[in-house]
Amino acid sequence: MLPKTGKSLPQRQADITFAELVSAALTEEVGETHRGVKTLMRWTGASERCVKHWLAGTHAPSGSHLLALMRHSDELLRHLLIAAGRREATVGLELASLRLKLRELLLLMDEGGAPPIRH
């Protein structure tokens, strides 16, 4: 037990709370607009007040809300994997994202909507 001397323990600058980590990821994914709030509410079933606390970084989502967010937000999943020291696991996320973008591009090209590539 630490003695009560009135001094607080120093914190490293790199330390970030879980709520701040969630806030950074969700803000990057959906922004802080009312539309972003509504999107997060739809994903999780959480109240508007809860979602605004998450975006502000003052509160973290509960376990069930966190799982729902991770189902929809690649950005949150990526942030959590990196924070857990599992950066190598993010490669799978990138690959899935690239595959989806490639599929969309191929569909666009098949429809004749993409301009020709010029070198």
Rank of each mutant, 00 (worst) to 15 (best):
T90H: 02
S47L: 14
H34E: 15
E29A: 02
G92I: 05
D110M: 13
P10R: 10
G92C: 04
G36Y: 14
L2S: 13
L105G: 11
L102N: 06
K38Q: 14
L108P: 10
E29Q: 03
G6E: 08
L80G: 01
G31F: 07
L9N: 07
M1E: 11
R103F: 08
E29C: 02
L80N: 01
T33V: 14
L26Q: 00
L9Q: 07
E28D: 12
D74K: 03
L21E: 03
G112M: 15
E94H: 11
F18I: 05
P115G: 03
W54E: 00
G85M: 04
W54S: 00
S64Q: 11
T33L: 09
A56H: 08
S62P: 06
A56F: 11
L69F: 01
L95V: 14
A19S: 15
V22Q: 00
M41G: 04
W54K: 02
A14I: 13
R118K: 12
G113V: 11
E32N: 09
V51W: 04
E48F: 09
C50H: 10
E111H: 15
E32A: 10
E94M: 09
P116T: 13
E28P: 01
V30W: 00
T5A: 05
G31C: 08
A14H: 14
M41I: 13
L105M: 11
A83C: 09
G57V: 02
T5H: 05
T39E: 06
T33P: 09
V22W: 01
M109P: 10
L93C: 08
E20S: 15
L98Q: 08
G45I: 09
D15F: 06
E32W: 03
H79Y: 13
G63W: 12
E104K: 13
I16G: 02
G45P: 12
A60E: 00
V30Q: 00
A84C: 06
H72M: 03
W54D: 00
K52C: 12
S64P: 15
T90K: 03
A60Y: 05
H34G: 15
L40D: 00
P3N: 04
M70E: 04
K52T: 07
P3V: 10
E28H: 03
A24C: 08
M70D: 05
M41L: 13
I16H: 04
A46N: 12
R87G: 09
P3D: 01
L9R: 11
T5P: 02
A19H: 12
A68Y: 05
R103L: 15
D74G: 06
E111N: 14
E32I: 14
S23E: 03
A114P: 04
S62T: 15
R99L: 10
H34L: 12
A84V: 11
S97H: 11
L98C: 07
S64K: 13
T27M: 02
T44V: 12
L93P: 05
A84Y: 05
E75V: 02
T27Q: 03
R99F: 05
L100D: 14
L40M: 08
L69A: 01
Q13M: 08
G85S: 07
V22L: 08
E20F: 04
H72C: 05
L40A: 01
